[in-house]
Each structure stands twice: as C-alpha cells, then as structure tokens.
Amino acid sequence: MYNLRPHCQSEIFSLRSVIVSPPSVIDIPNLKAAKEVQWNEPVNHSIAQEQHNNLCHALSEENVHILRYTDYLCEPDARLSKQLINRMFVRDLACVMKDTILPGHAGTSMRKPEYDHMQSLLRVWFCDEFKEIDVQISQGLEFGDLLILNRDAILINVGARTSVHSVKAILKQLFAIGFSEIAIIDLPRTSETLHLDMNCNIAHEDVIVAKSFLRFFPIQVYTNEKDYNYYMMEDYVRRHQFEVYWLEVYNTIPDINFLNINPETILLSTKANRRIFNDHPKLRNKNIIPVEVDELEKGGGGIRCMTLPLERRN
C-alpha cells in the first residue's frame, strides 16, 4: 500500500484502489436486536462474509486494488474490530479529495472505534496526504454525506450524521484543497435519509440519480468570494452540467447506493431495479456488474457505503 498515491476528484473516473472491511463476526440474531442497533433485519455473519468476498472478487476482476485495513490492525484493536457491527461501512471514516485525505468524525458514539482504527493506519501509510482537521470537531462529519461533483465543487448533506457546524469548521480546508464551491443541503433526519448517498448518486459524467423529493430542497453554496448563495437542487447541479434523473419509485439502498468503477461500468446490487438504468438513454448502455450483497445491505448501507476510493484516475 505504500506505493499508492491517493487521488480522487470525481465519482466516475477509473477506480484504481479502494479500502474495504469485512463484516463483523457477530450475528444480529433477530429483528428486535436489529432495530435496536438501527439495522433493517437480522444478519447471519457467515453469509455476510461470503458476500463481502464476492464483492471483493468483483472489484478485483475490474483490476481494482483492494486494501482491507482490518488486516493491519494490532492484536488488541483487531480483537475489538471483529466485533464492531458497522465496520464494513468504510465510506464514512475518511475521504480522499484530490490529493488530500481528510478524517471523518463519527456521528454516533457506537462507531467511534472504527474511525480511530482506520485513521491511525492512514496517518502512517499516507503521512503526506493525510491532513488533520484544523479545528476541534465535536459533532459528526461522516463522508457518506459527501459527493464530489467535479474538480471545483462538492455537495455535502448536513443531517442525521453530519452537522452543519462540522462542515463550516472545515470550509477553509476544503477551499485549500482546491474546491471553489462547497454546497450544503439539509435533508430530514430519518433512517431513509441517513446519508446523502442514500438519496442521490452520480451515475454518468452528466447525470445525477436522485429521489424526487430532493427537488424541493434549497442548497446553500459557499465560495471564497462570498459567504453563500442559495439555489434549488436542480438549478445548482445544472450549473455544473448535470442533468437530474428524478426517481419517483425506488428501493433506497440497492437502487441508489451503487459504485462507479469507471465511466462505463457500475457495480450494482442484485436487488436493484435495473429498469432505473434501462429507462434512461444515457444509462441504458452502461456495463452493469451485479453483486449479491443483500445480507450486507441489511445493516443499512449499500455497495458505495462499503467502499472507500483511494485512487481514481481519468
């Protein structure tokens, strides 16, 4: 991993390397337990592990280098990590933006250990690229709430797990990385809107797939020159040459939480509705790679949540 050079300024450029984590070795035995830990259904860890292996195989088949951070934990941390039921959702723990890695901050105390585990490794592996947050963050900053629109603009949700205080605290760092616009949307605090990538995703160089209700939400846009302006969602992304493909009917996790491997290829849950892609002229010719991850999705996240891109190249 020491030869890797983290770099991401797009959601669709060719994925070269990615961080993942296997699921916990602990079963979620019944629906009552699942609901109490904010999962959707009970989970069998053996099935979940098999599906994680299949996900990694699909990535490897596309020549994506896989880094399982959990393989490098010291023994006490590894013993604890195996019991952390959310550790497979690595997207939240950090974010590669251009040539910089920023650490996340857990929006719920249950997830704090996995943040510390992975970030302690990133500091060592990528000491030049890893940048500490300049200010003390006391509230959540989870990167499932961030979409890189292009080299100039990023869109961040402040809602259930990421606070507006945290985003405003890092604005100067985001501008220093090289972004000229930081757009903030504030979605309702529900299980269906836990993170931004459960509500919209970039599916093509100029197409964003989004739940239809997002059209009603204003976006607050910060720039270096002005504190902020307001735009409606569709107006704002059109300024950045995106069409919005509004979805009236959807299954939140499998339909929206997919992963772009490159501009032509998408990794998609076998539970996803393929008609969403087939019905759009710019998406119907995509190379769709289906992967069975439904046991993993019961934890409340999808393929995008389970993958942290380290390197995307044009």
Rank of each mutant, 00 (worst) to 15 (best):
I101M: 07
Q38L: 15
R123F: 01
V291T: 00
N257Q: 03
L55K: 04
R312H: 07
N54P: 03
T108Q: 12
N278P: 00
A160K: 13
I137D: 08
E297P: 05
N199M: 08
E129N: 10
L247V: 02
K226F: 11
P42K: 12
P6K: 01
S120G: 09
K286D: 02
E205N: 06
R68M: 08
V249T: 12
V221S: 05
D27A: 11
S14E: 14
L196S: 04
E11K: 02
V25A: 06
K32W: 02
V158I: 11
K211Y: 04
R123V: 08
T270D: 13
R239A: 12
L80W: 13
L155I: 04
P113W: 02
H280C: 05
S138R: 13
N199Q: 05
L147P: 01
R239F: 02
Y69M: 05
D235L: 10
E132H: 10
M97F: 12
R239S: 11
P188H: 03
I177H: 01
V43Q: 09
D134K: 11
F217R: 06
E41Y: 14
Q83N: 13
M233R: 02
L59K: 00
I202W: 04
R312Y: 04
F258Q: 02
G104S: 06
Y2D: 11
I47M: 12
I156T: 06
N229C: 12
G300R: 02
L310H: 04
D77W: 02
T100K: 06
Q119H: 06
M97A: 03
F258H: 08
D128Q: 12
S17K: 08
H240R: 12
M233A: 07
V90I: 10
K35Q: 14
L146Y: 01
F217H: 12
F213T: 08
E292L: 10
L93N: 02
S21M: 07
M118Q: 02
I276F: 01
Q136G: 03
Y72W: 14
V135A: 13
M88T: 15
M97K: 00
R79C: 14
L155E: 00
V64I: 13
L121R: 03
S60Q: 14
N150L: 07
S212P: 05
S17T: 06
P218I: 10
F179T: 06
E142K: 13
P22E: 05
H204G: 05
W39H: 10
D92N: 07
L121K: 01
D116M: 10
C74Y: 14
N54K: 07
I202S: 11
I253Q: 04
K32Q: 14
N285G: 13
I208S: 07
G301W: 01
V207H: 04
S138V: 13
V20T: 15
D116W: 08
P281Q: 11
D128V: 05
M88C: 13
N260E: 09
H204T: 00
L147C: 05
V124R: 01
N157C: 07
N285H: 09
R161M: 13
N314M: 12
